[in-house]
Design a protein around this nucleic acid. Structure first.
Lengths: 349, 349
DNA sequence: GTGAAAGCGCTAACAC
DNA sequence: GTGTTAGCGCTTTCAC
């Protein structure tokens, strides 16, 4: 077949409209509308004629025109704004939202905010210009003015992973504090007294919660907190490596690590392996990661229920779009500890 | 602040339109349109008045209405249809496309086709109904009727990872055959004579290409192909495990594995580790995966330039949307071998 | 430099 | 059952 690679039709070959279908089928556009949308009040004979005409012309409904005119004004599209769609956590979350949305005939406009307010604001405006029915957002750190503004305009919104700093908005998070506390308590129960905390940026709500859990876990076990064993603002595996290396230069180095984010865990493991400490120092990481089970020892982690979080977020935003007016909820999806070896190492005494 | 959790405005508080802004600024809607779109022919004084009015009312342009009326009919949106957005490869690709698109003011409607025709067709229709300006697709295996049909309607389209079975369409793939051939030749050069091939579904073009590369690599090294060392249709790590286990029950088991897909590599590694063969059997995998460097030994892989592929695909589709009429291209983005240890193991002789 | 009228493709509200 | 009219929010065309 010969085809222009431009992908543009001949000017004479306009995209067919309902009018064209109506003309060919000898009915009014309203009748075509009824048939295309499967609404009642369409004679079977006429219905067939319209269908045939539509097929002949290669007619495709124009949802954008339809939504402009319809009273509900729905675009059947939601926006998803995460930090980085190439991050496995974000990707899994997107997939879960997408699945749920698709089953409601809703498509997803996806974007990465790179944890940057300005970008987040711009993307939000882009989504708003396209009249998405609602948004699911992993809020960038710092202030949430743009989110709040969008929310106050009436856009249904669900925050994931981190709660809003403003009211009236649904949100879905995991058991950051509780699971961290349990993980640390577990290490303490094995006899560890020098348990380090390695965390991501302190501006992140999740980091704060996990740190709080760490503190509570120590307290619960009656273990004193040693400030020099707390390292934060480790954004990315490289910073985590440096910090871990420093810990092992201390006079009294840690015998266990609680690594509060997935890249931090990876960075820490690199150092442990390099120094051949990976069989002697215990590690529990927050967030699972691919192949954590293939390392030697396998890495014990706190695993979030990512699909569960995504489904819940999608359910919430879709329900709000459908007019659910119940009070805002903060859903907390439980995380689970997955023992694989690294978290079960006992201290050398 | 008090806010309805429904996210719906009061009926009285209609979404402001250009008309409202025009009324408040005492100008015509056409003038508002000029100001909002930054078109020339707007007096500075009037411009300010319009801007002020827009701000006061909280006006937001409606791209959907604008695109309906504009002559170019652009939605400033493209569709991305991959196999599974939660797969790291797909996710990285999406991110690269997204970045490129955003820099052109284009947003991405993303979906997973699950390698299923029917779903792919439905998603394509959904995208088409929303009048996306173009699509980037990882074609589901088997026939590509729906893709071809959509393409023939004139939708700009770029296929990634796998080429189209029809003409007139751009596509971006990697050096599947060449890189596979080189990887196998490399193993042979180390002295391996019993090199197994473990591949994903044979219906996938990439699997076929990689298999062809394997055959060529053996031939080039003068190594005879042993049919019993070839295992295909291993979709997922579990099937790969079974197949790998079987290989080591052979009278003359392989001394090296070429695993042609990343989950296959993972499955094979599990078996090698379980049997403590991971330091004696060489492995080169196609596709990098997170933490491949942290295993012991590190896994030698052929790494695709995923961001490069995504960027190229986005560039192509955006150019076509902009009216580029040059002949269709099949861009091939080079992959690179990353030696990490597993591919450098020599056979016990 | 600015505006009036028409209409993009579709559906709401009614009439027949 | 089916058609007519009006108009969603915006931009085009052309007049001033």
């Amino acid at each position: 077949m010969d085809m222009e690679p431009t992908g543009r039709r001949e000017p004479t070959m306009r995209e067919p409209t309902m009018r064209d279908v109506a003309a060919l089928a000898n009915v009014s556009t309203k009748t075509v509308s009824r048939v295309i949308n499967g609404l009642p009040g369409a004679g079977t004979e006429v219905t067939d004629r319209v269908r045939a005409a539509a097929r002949t012309l290669g007619y495709r409904p124009n949802l954008t025109a339809s939504s402009l005119r319809r009273s509900d004004r729905r675009s059947a599209t939601i926006g998803v704004l995460f930090e980085d769609l190439s991050n496995p956590f974000d990707a899994a979350l997107l997939r879960a939202v997408e699945d749920r949305a698709r089953h409601s005939g809703v498509l997803v406009l996806a974007g990465s905010n790179e944890d940057d307010h300005t970008l987040q604001r711009e993307l939000l405006l882009s989504l708003s210009a396209r009249r998405v029915d609602g948004v699911v957002v992993m809020a960038a750190g710092g202030h949430q003015d743009a989110l709040q503004h969008e929310r106050e305009r009436g856009t249904p919104m669900v925050l994931v992973d981190r709660p809003p700093t403003f009211g009236g908005t649904d949100c879905v998070t995991t058991t950051n504090r509780e699971s961290s506390r349990d993980a640390v308590a577990r290490l303490a129960a094995l006899g560890h007294r020098d348990i380090a905390f390695l965390g991501d940026r302190r501006t992140l709500w999740t980091s704060q919660e996990r740190y709080t859990g760490y503190v509570e876990g120590l307290a619960q076990a009656g273990v004193a907190l040693r400030g020099e064993l707390v390292r934060t603002d480790l954004h990315g595996a490289d910073l985590a490596e440096t910090a871990t290396a420093e810990l092992f230069c201390l006079e009294r180095p840690p015998t266990a690590l609680f690594t509060a984010q997935n890249l931090v865990t990876v960075g820490a493991m690199r150092v442990l392996r390099a120094r051949d400490l990976h069989r002697r120092v215990a590690v529990i990481g927050f967030d699972d990661f691919p192949l954590a089970d293939m390392l030697d020892p396998g890495i014990t982690v706190v695993r979030q229920d990512v699909p569960g979080i995504g489904r819940k977020a999608a359910d919430l935003v879709l329900a709000r779009i459908d007019g659910d007016t119940s009070p805002p909820v903060h859903a907390v999806v439980p995380a689970a500890l997955v023992p694989r070896g690294s978290g079960e190492i006992v201290p050398l005494s």
